[in-house]
Design a protein around this nucleic acid. Structure first.
Lengths: 335, 335
DNA sequence: ATGAAAGCGCTAACAG
DNA sequence: CTGTTAGCGCTTTCAT
């Protein structure tokens, strides 16, 4: 049996209310009584039972986080942001991974409700309509993060992906590139964040009087980039491409792997640019020129948004504009 | 106000005990009553409050997981293993990262106690003596996982690192390598898992009548491997080294980066082997020959161990021997 | 098979 | 400033 508030009260010779008061600093307590209570707590090694406390206060100090796959680098960075800021305000996170299953996402969502979490952050990669509906009329605070899909109806943290794409294009053009191939995943274009990026790419190409050359594949993984290699190589030859700009770093890495395996030198023979700045981007050789998406900050802002509703104005809003940065590395060379 | 068991009871026209019985299947209930209760639950969208339930049953169905850094690939794999198995038995995880701070580890530990977690898994990278003591006389089930240090007093999941090192050495020797440099991090050798690996390396070298050549550095990160590059290059030249065997993949990748940046070709000029099979090992070019440590399984076994104590024999023991595998890739070539 | 009632450990009026 | 008391939502005897 673990030690309860009663044991402390008894040992200290006061009532349980007094004990409660000192551990919560909720009401004035005489120095004498406080001393005795503190002593008793120390003596007994007492730790307040948060479950009991939650039951009465309705505050679990728990934020539920459902992610696609904690093994993904960008996901882990978001979680890290959530966690670090959460800890500052004494909130802990309870974590679940869905691995892309709609069913699992829903299951976790229900579960988190029963655990009385005060807020939910969802890091998803799929477009789960059921879930969107479910969330909409949920009384719990939540933020919906999705790297690929736009969900206009749900509170989220968004970045100016169009501007970022434009930055990269400006850079490439400045280095003398003209025939730039854009490699992207094909998805339901209307719902997709990719739409604005594609538009930005097209605009940039038009601005230099060039025709956009887009190749869509059905993957945003490394393997997808690799498998697209052969066809991309054809496009390079037939269209005199000097740079392949990939909509995700994973595609870029896959493509560079293909090039390496087929003796095509990056950036000597062809430049490659990515988007995301996943961890390998700086480790791989040649290092990958890319756009850095501030995953850590996205997580941090997401939980701030929730905490703000929960504990109010004491959260520093800062109205952070999330910094998207162009990271110049070795995979793109001047022509 | 959310809907409680009382509301269900009222609507169904039965007592709360009856409702409790049907949701827990704890005692026989007449079909008629059951039907009414189920209907009411459905009508109201009732979800039992787990906090209240935990308070009385003393079962939170929560496992606390404290990790060093969820952003580390191997850590995320362990967590994934913990989570997937936990979910099978209806246990959720509450996660905290310590980022190498002893203080944070301790803080989380206390916190998890107050949250009434039923078990704790610690994935640490440091040797936190205080914590080891604290854990020792804690009544909560726990497993201590540490990739670098041995803690004989604590329950853990251990691998045969010596055997794995031997496997790699046999492979290298079989390919004709004789002068093999072992690159490792220097630590308090007695407490370290590295000790057995170094011994295995030495034995293998002696078995072919060669003198061990070990270079110790004070890091197990990519940067450490990179920074060691210049000196390693000297050793290669002076000792006619044909392979550098690194005690961690991170060191191997750092070293290969150095080689790439200095126009030394792997594996043509020098072979490199790693240990761990972190995610980049298969992505990097050349792909890294290494030892695969079964991180996912380590997590899975860790939580199984705890659940076994918690729910008893119903957990399939399997007495899994964790598979350590030699992964042959491109970074090592036959001489 | 079912309901009444006690109690899990704690907080928050309420009365002094 | 302090103690008494009434719950929070649920499970679990104990009667019936």
């Amino acid at each position: 049996m673990s030690v309860t508030i009663k044991d402390v009260a008894k040992l200290a010779g006061v009532s349980i209310s007094t004990v409660s008061r000192v551990i919560n600093d909720s009401k004035p307590v005489s120095p004498e009584a406080r001393r005795k209570v503190l002593h008793a707590i120390d003596e007994l090694g007492y730790e307040p039972n948060q479950v009991a406390r939650s039951l009465v206060t309705k505050k679990s100090n728990l934020i539920g986080v459902i992610v696609d796959d904690i093994g993904n680098y960008y996901v882990s960075q978001i979680v890290r942001g959530i966690e670090e800021i959460g800890r500052m305000y004494n909130y802990d996170i309870i974590l679940g991974s869905s691995y892309g299953s709609e069913e699992t996402e829903m299951k976790y969502l229900q579960l988190l409700r029963t655990k009385q979490v005060e807020g939910i952050i969802l890091v998803s990669e799929i477009m789960n309509k059921n879930l969107v509906e479910y969330l909409e009329d949920l009384k719990i605070e939540f933020v919906y993060l999705n790297r690929y899909y736009n969900t206009l109806k749900l509170p989220t943290i968004s970045l100016d992906n169009g501007k970022a794409t434009g930055m990269m294009m400006d850079y490439l053009i400045e280095l003398g590139h003209k025939n730039i191939l854009y490699l992207t995943q094909e998805e339901d274009i209307e719902l997709t964040i990719e739409k604005v990026k594609i538009d930005a790419y097209k605009n940039a190409m038009k601005s230099i009087g060039n025709t956009p050359i887009i190749h869509k594949i059905n993957s945003h993984r490394i393997k997808g980039g690799y498998d697209a290699g052969a066809y991309v190589k054809e496009l390079i030859d037939t269209h005199n491409i000097s740079t392949v700009f990939c909509s995700q770093d994973e595609l870029a890495i896959g493509l560079m792997n293909y090039f390496y395996d087929n003796d095509i030198k990056v950036p000597e023979d062809i430049s490659v640019a990515g988007y995301g700045d996943i961890s390998v981007a700086a480790i791989y050789r040649p290092t990958l020129t890319t756009i850095r998406e501030p995953y850590y900050d996205i997580g941090a802002v997401a939980i701030r948004k929730i905490l703000k509703k929960l504990i109010g104005e004491s959260i520093d809003d800062e109205n952070i504009t999330l910094p998207i940065r162009l990271i110049k590395r070795e995979s793109v060379k001047r022509i």
